[in-house]
Design a protein around this nucleic acid. Structure first.
Lengths: 221, 221
DNA sequence: GATGACACTCGACAGGGTGTTGACTGCTGT
DNA sequence: ACAGCAGTCAACACCCTGTCGAGTGTCATC
């Protein structure tokens, strides 16, 4: 509940690892079971008992590895956001090469990463409402991304490629928020949603409009 | 669970009303208690017993009025969306008068309505993840709004005020999604968010950029 | 080759929430 | 006077969570 947490929600003290691999095996088994079950039903309909049985252990034993069901999700979420960061790579620093293509690449990569783990991402979005830890982690991740986008927009403005306008931070927040909600609707498939095949181009179009105020290709180096 | 539902989640058959007002009194007392409690703690931390005691009845009696805790939220949500619809009024049909001012009015009115019931709106967004009824209701409301915006964009394009570009429906979905998520972050106050005083102008700016591709004032009649 | 330490396991319990049942009360119309 | 129904709740059955305590097997060390 107040653990500093980095990586996993381990209940016991550090220091095992090495030798006796059963422990880590079980942990990954729980994680795998969670991601598998998440593709079949909602997070709320998965009990700790389901997770435990899926990993071949009893419910009390589950608590040896994770302090709660939410902690499992948190670990999974941590993993996916790292994957997304890696997928994004350094496109933002290469923006000047060909802005539209680079922004598209960024959005496309995120789309692919989230799409590959849609069940998990959807579950996190839901749990975020009820779990403070997930909320905090997501807020921190989002803050990083917002800052990166903000810096990129400011760089584009400095080199004269993008006009001044809204504070770059507000623009970055709004665009990120749009992506998040649009992806959610697309992957969840309920309510009005953009078709999965079009979503990258729709988002890109609005990013370009918001940042460059124009659909014409912005100047490259 | 499979009731057609219109208005409220009544458990008993229709036909009481009139005379013996106690029934309706209790019902509104439950509703009022829910909205009050929602301002103090999260929906998940409010038990049916809290709602019942707040309304001066016992837990089983609660079930006489509503089939579940979620049904209370559903009724409240229905009420707020109606309020938002009323607040929006007919601004969209008067767009040509002064597009920017009318769009601003639309966004501003929604902002005020949601802001006035932020605790409720936040709770609904959370529960939407776990409750199919809330999800359906929200999807239906959103669909109405998306269609209205879509029609307005197409009208603007027909009169030559807005350029062609993205399919109007996709544009409408993306802009509505952006608003929803941005407001959520602003009202929830966790994670990166636009300041409440600026949020209407930030959203408006992106709507204008997305629809008219230009910050210059679009032509009025 | 006994001993202690520790990773790991689970049966059994306590607690808190939900939804249902069945009996009860008191109007209200006939 | 009485049938009927809105309205009420104590008590129950159920499910899920989290904890406690008593294990078991495997190491390193003496």
């Amino acid at each position: 509940m107040t653990t500093a947490r980095t990586g996993a929600g381990r209940a016991s003290p550090r220091g095992r690892r090495a030798a006796r691999s059963t422990g880590d095996d079980r942990e990954t088994a729980i994680l795998a079971t969670a991601e598998r079950l998440l593709e079949q039903r909602a997070f709320g309909d998965i009990s700790i008992d389901d997770l435990a049985r899926g990993a071949g252990i009893s419910r009390p034993t589950f608590y040896f590895y994770f302090p709660s069901k939410d902690a499992v999700l948190l670990t999974l979420l941590d993993r996916v956001t790292e994957e997304a960061d890696a997928a994004a790579g350094d496109v933002l620093v290469r923006l000047a090469e060909d802005p539209r293509a680079r922004w598209r690449e960024l959005i496309q990569r995120f789309h692919e990463t989230f799409g590959a783990h849609r069940a998990l991402v959807l579950a996190c979005a839901q749990v975020r409402g009820t779990n403070a830890e997930v909320r905090r982690l997501w807020a921190a991740v989002l803050e990083r991304w917002v800052q990166a986008i903000e810096a990129a927009i400011e760089a584009e403005r400095r080199r004269g490629a993008a006009p001044d306008g809204l504070p770059a931070r507000d623009l970055a927040i709004a665009l990120n928020s749009m992506n998040e909600r649009v992806w959610y609707a697309t992957f969840a498939g309920d309510g009005p949603a953009v078709d999965e095949r079009d979503v990258v181009d729709v988002l890109l179009d609005l990013w370009m409009a918001g940042i460059y105020r124009d659909t014409a290709t912005p100047p490259s180096t």
